[in-house]
């Protein structure tokens, strides 16, 4: 579904160039749940921004469902984002002037969906994510976990094919994090959502089927969950992180 081919990304000017991504390549298959891990400054968010078309690559290609996103003009990119990509951010990014229902419905409204059908579609997704009873409330009236579930609902309500999550559990306590990760796993397993999650938390990454490790802008390692259970996978991830350098406590 997603092919990342040899992408490079540089920042800065002639005198001072920072290489944020260095020949990164990987594929994401349909229905896969993949996590990208790395310490701060390893290029995780840059990679996610490039895939989400918010940022552009300096070299290389990104193909989503066979379409090279580098070739798309600005207006097509916007359409591409709203039709194919769903976003979940660390700080929720819900609009505080809209209710939860309206925040979710906004994604459909941006897609010029028939206004008469929006409410029903929102209700359908909300019931799957267990947030039906908070639809009338404003973001400041609900908990962090509920906000993040609303963000997940927004990311999939318009039938987006790829869900991009940037540290989705970063602002949640451990119980809400677990709940959210289980919901994301459910979305992946039961609804066939393809998920690409950036995280520096090994516990979150252990919910994914595959983990890519980034260090200094390059892919350093890759772990596949296979048939192992989550707890074993979690420890394997910690081992790789130890190899990556830095204190384990930094990355948990």
């Amino acid at each position: 579904m997603l092919q990342v081919k040899n992408i490079e990304k540089y920042y800065g000017n002639q005198n001072n160039v920072t290489k944020a991504l260095d020949r990164v390549s990987f594929d994401v298959c349909d229905g896969e749940f993949i996590a990208i891990m790395g310490a701060s400054g390893s290029g995780k968010t840059t990679l996610l921004n490039c895939i989400s078309t918010i940022d552009t690559v300096s070299a290389g290609d990104i193909l989503l469902e066979g379409e090279n996103i580098a070739d798309l003009p600005a207006d097509r990119l916007a359409r591409f984002r709203r039709e194919k990509l769903g976003f979940v951010f660390q700080d929720f990014n819900l609009l505080d002037t809209l209710t939860i229902e309206e925040n979710i419905g906004l994604a459909l409204s941006l897609n010029h969906q028939d206004p008469g059908k929006v409410q029903n579609q929102v209700k359908a997704v909300a019931s799957k994510l267990g947030i039906t009873d908070i639809l009338e409330k404003f973001p400041y009236q609900v908990s962090g976990g509920q906000k993040q579930r609303a963000a997940c609902a927004r990311a999939m309500v318009a039938g987006q094919s790829l869900l991009l999550a940037d540290e989705p559990t970063g602002a949640l306590d451990s119980r809400a994090s677990k709940n959210l990760l289980e919901i994301m796993t459910g979305m992946n397993r039961d609804m066939g959502a393809t998920i690409l999650m950036v995280t520096h938390d090994a516990y979150s990454a252990s919910y994914a089927g595959r983990v890519l490790f980034l260090k200094d802008g390059r892919i350093f390692n890759e772990l596949l969950k296979g048939q192992r259970n989550r707890s074993v996978f979690y420890h394997e991830i910690l081992d790789v992180l130890a190899l990556l350098g830095g204190d384990v406590s930094d990355v948990i």
């Binding site: 989400s52 918010i54 600005a74 207006d75 916007a78 359409r79 591409f80 984002r81 709203r82 039709e83 990509l85 976003f87 990014n93 609009l95 906004l106 994604a107 941006l110 897609n111 927004r154």
Partner: peptide
């Protein structure tokens, strides 16, 4: 945020 969600500039 709206830009990320795919709202066009126009």
């Amino acid at each position: 945020l709206l830009q990320k969600l795919g709202m066009e500039q126009k």
